[in-house]
Design a protein around this nucleic acid. Structure first.
Lengths: 219, 219
DNA sequence: GTCTATACTTGGATAGAC
DNA sequence: GTCTATCCAAGTATAGAC
């Protein structure tokens, strides 16, 4: 039931004027969240960026938070598709770290994770919004767990750090790095961290390929 | 120069009515940031929690963001004192992880890190606020670097992960875990992570105490 | 130092013309 | 479906009484 409210007749052609307006509003919402944060993402601010009228926010999305959630949906869909593609193409842990670095870099430059972070923290001021944001974060967490499972398959790390625990840390790490990079306007430290992780990953890839180097390995 | 504006005569006795009001406003600001976020932390909202008049926010702190920064200063001072005490009492890496877990738990329950996170993300909507928040975050980062340096002294991890890089990851991790725990209303996964880290730390403590287990060790 | 009252601004939301 | 006009609520900030 959540999500079905205030959707006007989607009867017009797939990329008619209506769809264009909705898309422009979503793009404007993303830009606003990125540049002026949740507190600054008002209907007027967003409409100005979309080049249309403030009233259309309410016509198409019912409320400002309705639009912000739609923007989050939009980002999630596009980002997860990109992530999944990268994951499928990674055959080693080092590959996976490289992919994660590329994802982080791209997301940061385009501000996608910033939008997510703003929504998570901003949700506190709007009753009921927290649950809806959490729902939309769920697929990212599932994806992280899958990536970790794939990257650690057969690694000695598995025994020490279960995939689910590590996945939680990975998501938290992404969000935290984004927070700091955004505040500092400098993603250097975060990228340096990925480079270090890559070195460790290379070691683990090697350890995984040498059976005798796996303590407790039984197969 | 920033910070000296709008400070009314501190001529009254140290814990006179003035100091009480200022303290109540700061406490109200912290509670508001924690419960309704940056976007909801208005002068009226804060004054209501402080049990005083809205106009006093401007009299004592000049503006709402002035008060919020004062609140952040207050938290930083008290938290860093507590952290430093814990650090001084930790003699092994496992001890340090235990301390970190205790810090995280306490901060989360009391909402101190939530305040920091709200200020970091909320700063985007108020020009110039970002730099001031960054200034106040700096001591936390310095502390993290010291803790990491102390915890890793003589550990084989040092060669792979320089202390500064790791410290950046630790701060990002804290902020990210806070973000998730706050959204979910569940700090279980974060605490589980600390437990895992503690296990690894115990291993490293052991490795550090056995010279032959340190590859490349030269002393 | 603290309060009441108020000026001014911005934002959410709706009605109705086109 | 989009716009203009408008209402109302909430927010920042100041003036002036006490």
């Amino acid at each position: 039931m959540a999500g079905s409210a205030h959707r006007p007749q989607p009867r017009s052609s797939p990329d008619g004027r209506t769809a264009q307006t909705r898309a422009a509003l979503i793009a404007g919402a993303i830009a606003a969240l990125r540049e002026v944060g949740y507190a600054g993402a008002s209907a007027r601010e967003i409409a100005a960026r979309a080049g249309c009228n403030q009233a259309l926010v309410f016509y198409h999305f019912g409320s400002v938070s309705g639009l912000l959630l739609a923007a989050l949906d939009d980002i999630s869909a596009r980002r997860l598709a990109a992530y999944t593609g990268l994951l499928a193409r990674s055959s080693s842990l080092a590959d996976l770290i490289d992919s994660a670095r590329a994802i982080f870099h791209e997301d940061l430059e385009s501000g996608h994770v910033a939008v997510l972070v703003e929504m998570i923290t901003g949700a506190a001021s709007t009753p009921g919004l927290g649950e809806q944001v959490a729902e939309r974060l769920a697929p990212w967490r599932t994806f992280a767990a899958e990536a970790v499972r794939q990257g650690l398959a057969g690694s000695p790390v598995e025994a020490l750090l279960p995939a689910d625990d590590l996945a939680h840390a990975v998501v938290a790490g992404f969000l935290g790095l984004e927070l700091l990079a955004n505040l500092d306007g400098d993603l250097g430290p975060a990228l340096a961290l990925f480079d270090r992780a890559r070195q460790v990953a290379t070691l683990l890839d090697f350890a995984g390929s040498v059976p005798s180097a796996r303590p407790g390995g039984r197969s």
